[in-house]
Amino acid sequence: MIYVFLADGFEETEAIAPIDILKRFGKEVVTVGIGGGKITGAHGITVIADITDSDVIMTDKVEMIVLPGGMPGTLNLEKSPVVQAAIKFCADNKKAIGAICAAPSIIGKLELLKGKKATCFPGFEQFLEGAMFTGDLVNIDDNIVTAKGAGAAVEFGLALGALLCGEGKAEKTAKSLQCR
């Protein structure tokens, strides 16, 4: 199972594209509304989450968590004790973590990017504590995937899927999506 955390002000493309792509990989994706079931993105699109943060249970069934960026969505994710606990669980149990746009700053501040290649939306590099900042669209390093922003959302989704299901499946999925 993959939890995708949504907080008011999230960047819609950075959430919806990876959700769609991960489902194409055959993964069970569960959207989690922080503070409620109806979450409104940075561009006014409201999404009804599958569950709320009070329903999150971190178990071995969780393969990955995904943190979309956007403002103030990233700040709202960072303030959530449930998101913080999920990140800690994943770090402690070598589960995958995906973060895009401003969201890599959350895991950077927790020093989970130390010595890892990482990227983020321009202007958030200072929060990637100890990371080897690349400026690439997407980076995969060990169990962490980071991406630059909304324009990289499809590639981010494919990288998340590749981490869990392998490059072969990612290539087939990319081809089916007509990606370059």
Rank of each mutant, 00 (worst) to 15 (best):
E111D: 14
H43G: 06
F10M: 09
I57V: 15
E125H: 07
E125N: 06
G123Y: 04
D142W: 11
L160H: 02
L158D: 01
D92M: 10
A103V: 02
L158I: 14
D92T: 14
D60K: 08
V4G: 01
E171I: 15
I100S: 00
I45A: 12
N93C: 10
T13P: 02
T146F: 00
P72E: 08
T40Y: 02
C120T: 06
K116P: 07
I100E: 01
A15F: 09
I107W: 03
M58P: 12
L164A: 10
I100F: 01
I144T: 06
D50S: 09
F10G: 11
F10W: 12
E14K: 06
G69M: 01
A102S: 11
V62E: 14
G33L: 04
V62A: 11
T59D: 14
F156I: 03
A103I: 01
F124L: 02
E14P: 01
M58N: 15
K175I: 14
A15G: 14
N76W: 07
D55A: 13
K61N: 15
V154C: 10
T59R: 11
A86R: 10
K38Y: 09
S176H: 04
I16H: 12
A150E: 01
L137A: 15
G70M: 02
A17C: 10
C165K: 08
E111Y: 07
N139R: 07
V29T: 03
E167Q: 12
T119N: 03
T173C: 06
F133Q: 11
I2A: 11
I144C: 10
I21K: 09
G123Q: 04
D53F: 00
D142N: 13
I106R: 01
V82G: 03
K95I: 03
G98V: 00
P104S: 01
E78G: 06
V32E: 02
I51C: 06
I16M: 15
A15N: 08
L112N: 08
P68V: 12
T46C: 08
C179A: 13
C120P: 05
F133L: 05
D8W: 00
L77F: 05
I140F: 12
T74K: 00
T173P: 00
T31P: 03
D136T: 13
V66K: 01
V56L: 09
M71G: 04
A159V: 02
D136S: 15
K116Y: 12
G149T: 07
A159N: 02
E125K: 10
V62S: 08
D55S: 14
E63S: 13
I144D: 10
I45K: 14
V145D: 00
A91R: 15
P81H: 03
A7G: 10
F156T: 03
L158S: 03
I144N: 11
G36R: 08
F25A: 02
G37I: 13
D50G: 06
K116L: 15
K88D: 15
V29I: 09
L158F: 08
I34A: 01
V47Y: 15
K95Y: 05
G168R: 08
L6R: 05
Q126W: 00
G37K: 13
G108S: 09
L160R: 03
C179L: 13
E111F: 07
I48A: 06
G157D: 04
K175C: 13
A153F: 08
C165E: 15
F156H: 05
V66C: 03
L128S: 05
L75M: 15
V62K: 14
K23L: 08
A17P: 04
Q178A: 12
T74S: 02
L137S: 15
A159L: 03
G115I: 00
Q126E: 12
